[in-house]
Design a protein around this nucleic acid. Sequence first.
DNA 1: GACCAGGTGCCAG
DNA 2: CTGGCACATGGT
Length: 278
Amino acid sequence: MNRVSVDVAEFNLTRTLESGQVFHWTPEGSGWRGLIDHTDVYVEQNGIAISCDASHLEVVSRYFSFDHPLKQIYKSFPDHDFMRAALLSCRGIRIIRQPHWECLATFITSPMKQVTHIRQMSLAIRKRYGNPVEGSAINAYPTSKQLARADEQALRECGLGFRAKSLFKASQMVAEGKLDLEKIAALPTEEARETLCGIPGVGKKVANCVLLFAYERLDAVPIDVWIARVLKELFQKKNQKLTPRQMEEYSQTRLGIYAGYAQQYLFHHARAVKTGRG
DNA sequence: GACCAGGTGCCAG
DNA sequence: CTGGCACATGGT
């Protein structure tokens, strides 16, 4: 165990991990512990200094996207009061590069669930089906083959409710090779989205989450209940209603070329305001 | 106990 | 293509 430290401007570890992208990290000491794929990692932040085990630095740098040009991304944000407020309270959040299957599977469990519930289900699934990792209190996220060996009823016991069927079927598709998640990475965004939407339990919103959080499509905008409210706040003219189609259009044309980033800041800020943490 | 949560699939017009 | 509704679970 040999700790190293690197300076990263425009990075806030805690905000990033609490912004609803990823659900299994746990605060420990003055830092955070979690699994990056199968690697047990402990990360700390002191000012702009980020420290972790030397052997993890490469994995950590990629996972937390230290290469994203945050200054440039901030310049691309739309010029609105709410967006400025979101930047103030969310500064330093980076879009994480998650493993494809882990990201897809966790967001299949997300519809009509609060962030804390998604975390609970995710941890329950890891505990029941995932491989143990030495030094880690939680298991690795189970592979598609491991979940395909489960059954719908057992998945329901992890709190999934009606989402159990979708996750089970999706696991089978991937495990049987009917769907190659690695191939999706090479597709243009529109085709990648269509392919993802062919998976049970995956509609536009979940597809966009997966494109943004696992396939590096920084212009993908998941529109959930929170972002729908924000889009109305930003673009709805009074006495007019914003249709889903219009929200989709605005999200693509008015949030800048890093629309996914803008969306993440707006999402987190809107939630923080609501829960009194903003 | 009503209400809401990072929606999706299906069915009717 | 668009709007309405059922679908499970857990926390205020």
